[in-house]
Amino acid sequence: MQTVSPVKTSKHLEIKKKKKKWKHTFTICMFIAPALFIYGLYVLYPILSTFQLSLSSWDGNPAGPTFIGLDNYIRLLSDPIFFKALRNNILVVLTSVFIQIPLGLILALLLFAPLKGLRVFSTVYFMPFLMSTVAIGLLWIFIFDPINGPLNKFIQTLGMKPVAWLGSPDTAMFSVLLVIVWQFAPFYMILFKAAMVGIPDELYESASIDGATGVKKFIYITLPLLIPTMVTSSILAIVGSLKQFDLFYIMTGGGPSNATELMGTYMYKNAFLSFNMGYASTIAFTMFLIAFIVTVIIQVLEYYRRKKGVFS
């Protein structure tokens, strides 16, 4: 049977196979097409377009942008406000990693403590994360209000002088950072809580038999097992902090006198208030590059961490 025109059969099969393969590819394309189209139109193309605009000067007029090469980047490197903004972004990153995440851990630990009314505690601890950033910003503006705000009232009862929290360049950054901590600590709380639920009870039991006390159990069992969560949290905090915009825009708009300027607020002002679309694109593309570089560094570190099995 095999000797009967083997060429014809294999050719026939090949065509059928090709047809099937083509159909397979077509199906795949149909499934992915909608996502790829929207993603391409609203994410991929805009990034390329931002890069192109970053090399031009444009005030948004219909005549279109003028190519000016790297001039905007040269300007950026000698722009003190940009560096101030970058420094503030780094401050947000540091606050997130070294204050927010530890506070999230403390909150999560409290949820495992033998407290009465635990459900109420856990609900209230989590609530800030559910409010919209705009609502949070507006609410805290009034809490920080120099005259009618409860915070000043409170410190006055302690015998301190009232402070213009958001109005003074010395305290504005601190004030907004406090609100960021308030908003995001609950998020890290739930990440830690989820990780702590996953720690087997046997570990604690056998540690108790060996005579370990609460603090020792925490240091030798809980903490090491939470390190992967801390790494994840730090990554989320870093990436999130570089994108930070809403809260600063609402609460201070980057002021007073650029004290709370972020790359995001500075870019927004350049683009939509003074219509320096070209220079704004340069800031935007620099933000993209920084996020990209940070992501690559994190991925490389993660790769080595996994490979060596450190902390995991």
């Binding site: 609203y42 994410v43 931002t50 994108k243 870019m267 935007a284």
Partner: peptide, 9 residues
């Protein structure tokens, strides 16, 4: 990881 600002304009 993308900052929204990079697509805004």
């Amino acid at each position: 990881m993308l900052p929204i600002h990079a697509t805004l304009i």
